[in-house]
Design a protein around this nucleic acid. Sequence first.
DNA 1: TTGAAAGCGCTAACAG
DNA 2: CTGTTAGCGCTTTCAA
Lengths: 341, 341
Amino acid sequence: MFKPITIKDIAQALNLSASTVSRALSDSYEINPETKKRVLAYAEQNNYKRNPIALSLKQRKSYSIGVVVCEVANSFFSQAIDGIESIAYKNGYNIIITQTHDSYDREVMNIKHLANRSVDGILISLSAETTNFDHIKKLHDAGLPIVFFDRIYDGLATHKVSSDNRNGAKMATQHLIEKGYRKIAHLANAPHLSITKERLAGYREALTENGIPIEEANITYCHHGGSNQKEVDAAVQYFLSMDEKPDSIFVASDRLSIGCLTAIKKYGDKAYMPAIAGFSNSDVLDLFSTDFSSIRQPAFEMGRVATDRLIQLIESKYPVYEHESIVLGTELIERIPGKLL
Amino acid sequence: MFKPITIKDIAQALNLSASTVSRALSDSYEINPETKKRVLAYAEQNNYKRNPIALSLKQRKSYSIGVVVCEVANSFFSQAIDGIESIAYKNGYNIIITQTHDSYDREVMNIKHLANRSVDGILISLSAETTNFDHIKKLHDAGLPIVFFDRIYDGLATHKVSSDNRNGAKMATQHLIEKGYRKIAHLANAPHLSITKERLAGYREALTENGIPIEEANITYCHHGGSNQKEVDAAVQYFLSMDEKPDSIFVASDRLSIGCLTAIKKYGDKAYMPAIAGFSNSDVLDLFSTDFSSIRQPAFEMGRVATDRLIQLIESKYPVYEHESIVLGTELIERIPGKLL
DNA sequence: TTGAAAGCGCTAACAG
DNA sequence: CTGTTAGCGCTTTCAA
């Protein structure tokens, strides 16, 4: 069942040796054009396909790259994957996608699994829970090419691709300020994530520049990135329980935005309805006239750039010592309530 | 760089033969417990990992399964992928995801690529453009296990997993009727897709049962599944141009729902705003109080079931001649406008 | 220009 | 209980 034709079969059929066939197939210069033509013709006819597994074994290369994200059912990441795929395929690689669901344990498992599966390199966006990086360091030290995107770890000498989180956060906060809000809460992601720190910095910057005092009590972290709705609910309930409730919330991520809106819908009332602005790549938001302006990251492009760099690393003949930190711009999408829909 | 330890290394270090080590590692019964312990200990210490590629070559098995969907940035499919992943990983398989973007050519490419990559089996949800199935038939005939999900092809003797599209469509249409709408248009997917036919049947059934005449002019197809927004725009503009405009629209898919809302937002006006109901697995919709009730498919479960069946096929010792067509239930989610948000 | 042989890492039939 | 041998499909010296 399903036994494809091999180089040996061709050799036998054409009365040649396997090595000659191999050479003909890889278009070696030192081969009789006549023979080459015969081999190619026969291969074509019997639609011979190189066995990539044998090739991998021989060349110690799998032509596949691993991708580690928290979840694919997330606008930002699914768009990023589109970008990753586009570059990977163009270069003859396929991608193996794994999801951490923002759990450290699953991240460790997945990365081990990928390394074990002998991928040629890995693209990582860290899980919200990750604070120990040994599982990644070990592989990196062993020579496995790794590129971070979105959720970066700075302690590793490799390429990093992110978006301008600080400025995005600043724009969002500034946007709320311009709309007249003053008591702006911040629903933040897990505290150790790179994006959390950067977005927090942007939030602070906007407030400071506008002479609004920063109150730590207005900032709440979601240690699991909102992968459990309960923690988002708790955060929102906390905001709602404050003596002086926030008039608006700057939300740090796609996942949290959805979670935050859900929680507000659940616990809020007509009398109190904070404005919301935050990071999100969801297209669906465009359809509604909520008071939810968002910061959009160039997800597709980030995926492309990260993959491009990873393949560079993989295919480089010599060890690469210079590493880029690439930061792409973010975009504010203002949404005005009260229009159609 | 990155040269992992092999069975030979262990053999040498322990003064054993490679086969003994291999046996010890695979916990063969016919091995001295003492030796086994030594080998295991050494392997553990030097964190030996089986080379899966060598294993694949030997066993003609890659422990990976290919997945073909139109796009991951789609609530239904990303949820289905979650389900696929959960079962695949539990059984030691990893998944290679490819996107067709609803193009026939890309589907052919991707499937070839997967077969070529020697996956052990493929899960397919057809592209909207596909009308010729030779590329799939060929592989199936050659013995490659294939399971269809969601967008089925009936001409192949294999397992198929779908949701109750007919009844889902009927519920949605019935829902519109109950809300008082009478001129209900149908924005359909590509005509040859299984889901299109089934959903159309449900739509017709609801109308008929309610004594509403079926008018073909009220039905418009999107031949590329809405992967190009222009075709959705055209369809909506057509509805808007009708002498007697539809008072509501039943939309056939997730992608089309988004597209339809987008188009209406673009071309509609306050005076005319049709009600909409349709298939969608988007969680975001729950957050808004649009007049958009939706039919939700059990995406995660569909992914699980399909993968389970595929692995059964893969691991079956004997050819399987009995094939299931599994149909899972759909759910109507009513949304009432005018609430919070 | 072609062939023979070795080897990538692993398993399995066979022999002891 | 353990070792020898062969082979999965392919590439690549080395020799002819």
